[in-house]
Amino acid sequence: MEVKNHKLATTKDMRPEEFKNNDYLLRMAEELNRDGAGIVLSTVDDVINWGRSNSVWSLALGTSCCAIEFMALGAARYDMARFGFEVTRNSPRQADLLMVLGTITYRMAPLMKRLYDQMAEPKYVIAVGGCTISGGPFRKGYHVVDGIDKIIPVDVYIPGCPPRPEAFFYGMMQLQRKIKMERFLGGRNRKEKPEDGETKREEKA
């Protein structure tokens, strides 16, 4: 898919055409191009987004297998520090990215939502593995949430059981591309409409 837009063409090591774009990304790019923004504001936005996208500190909510692959991602062979994912913060207040690694069960779901609510804006969510995306092999079970996107908004899905480290990188770089298209000063484009994102603020305390 050809996207004639510099906003989409911004990650090192991989050429823009090597990424797949989904309609969400395309819509964001289209909105950016259509609405435009002042040169100052958009430049400041670009700078901030550059910072944000290159410094994604994750909070690993590791419940099962995928968490081990995430550890392998941090270890020497794959070394996610190279891309700016160096720091994992264990306190949700200080993290930018909630990595949901592994099955989310009924007992865990309220806690996952609380963790999400405790995070400071801007915050992103990556759903890793079949279990978080759809419930995976356990979706028929009596205690498994079939897809965490029913509870919190998800930015990127990384399928696999567990995904390979390369897939992790692809997903995380997709998130970087998404962050680079955000608007910070010139309006908002990331959040769903306010009435959709109602669960947001109530628990911030």
């Binding site: 901030i48 910072g51 944000r52 290159n54 410094s55 190279r82 891309f83 700016g84 160096e86 804006e121």
Partner: peptide, 24 residues
């Protein structure tokens, strides 16, 4: 260690972190 952000040595990694944390 960091080597993507800002050229070869990842020199701009920490400024990126600072920018991020300032707008958090």
């Amino acid at each position: 260690g960091p080597n993507r952000v800002g050229g070869k040595g990842g020199l701009l990694q920490v400024p990126a972190d600072v920018l991020k944390i300032l707008t958090k």
